[in-house]
């Protein structure tokens, strides 16, 4: 039977006569089918993905830059001092300290209501705030990966006559990438879920859509469960892709 027809026939009945399941169906219908509400979840989902991709791109670029500066500074030969590098390194350190030392929510509120208080492109401001936040964590992950590699690997590369860039490209980065992939995947999942916070600065992503529907129907249960399931499916899908990539990179670990 058609869901609309079922809803119509159940609405005609006295509310007290409905069974538990019929009642649940009514609530779900209002959260999903009524007035084509399902569309606004997917619109919100679209924004969520858009913000995630933008913030990810921004965070990775920023993270790589900061990681390179920090690593280059820390791996300088003892005794040599480059003042420009030292200055840029200091800025990077302050950035990482501030971002890691304050809550994501507070940062977003500052971006949305203080720095870009007059901006109407909430999505973009949200993506910027998330990207800057994510960059600090990505930087630390990459820096950890580069520093954890045995210095003998880079020495072997250099001793063969490879220059610094070739050594990074063929020897250090492929190995560091494999080592940081699990943490990087984790950071991506955190970022994906943190996009829900941009609803506090009026970013119209999926949680925003769910709350709007809840307010309209006076019933938050199904909108929030639907939202949770959407995040869960996305994260599971991503974890699966990540595990495939990790298995491929493990080819050289065979014994």
């Amino acid at each position: 039977m058609n869901v609309d027809a079922l809803y119509e026939s159940l609405s005609a009945l006295n509310k007290a006569d409905l069974s538990l399941w019929q009642n649940m169906f009514m609530r779900f219908y209002r959260a999903w089918f009524e007035a084509d509400r399902w569309k606004s979840y997917f619109e919100g989902l679209g924004t969520t993905l858009e913000v995630t991709v933008l913030a990810l791109a921004f965070g990775v670029v920023l993270g790589v830059l900061v990681a390179i500066v920090r690593t280059a500074h820390d791996q300088q030969r003892p005794g040599t001092k480059n003042f420009l590098l030292g200055f840029v390194n200091l800025i990077c350190k302050v950035y990482v300290t501030i971002i890691r030392g304050t809550p994501m929510m507070v940062q977003l509120l500052i971006w949305g209501f203080v720095i870009f208080a007059t901006s109407r492109s909430f999505t973009l401001v949200g993506a910027l705030g998330l990207g800057i936040n994510s960059g600090a964590y990505v930087a630390e992950i990459i820096r950890g990966g580069l520093m954890s590699l045995d210095p003998g690997q880079a020495e072997a590369g250099r001793s063969l006559g490879l220059n610094y860039i070739q050594t990074m490209r063929f020897v250090v980065i492929p190995q560091a990438f494999k080592a940081i992939l699990p943490s990087l995947g984790n950071e991506f999942i955190v970022l994906l879920k943190d996009t829900s916070l941009i609803s506090v600065i009026a970013g119209k992503e999926v949680v925003y859509a769910a709350r709007a529907i809840g307010a309209r129907t006076y019933d938050y249960m199904f909108p929030l469960i639907i939202t949770a399931i959407m995040y869960l499916i996305m994260v599971m899908l991503f974890s699966y892709l990540q595990s495939i990539l990790e298995r491929r990179l493990r080819a050289s670990d065979r014994r």
Binding site: Q153, S159, Q175
Partner: peptide, 19 residues
Amino acid sequence: NKHRQKMGMVFQHFNLFPH
């Protein structure tokens, strides 16, 4: 880099590229 091409080096811990 030019000079290192002419000087081979062998390390205590081999330092082969594991990947």
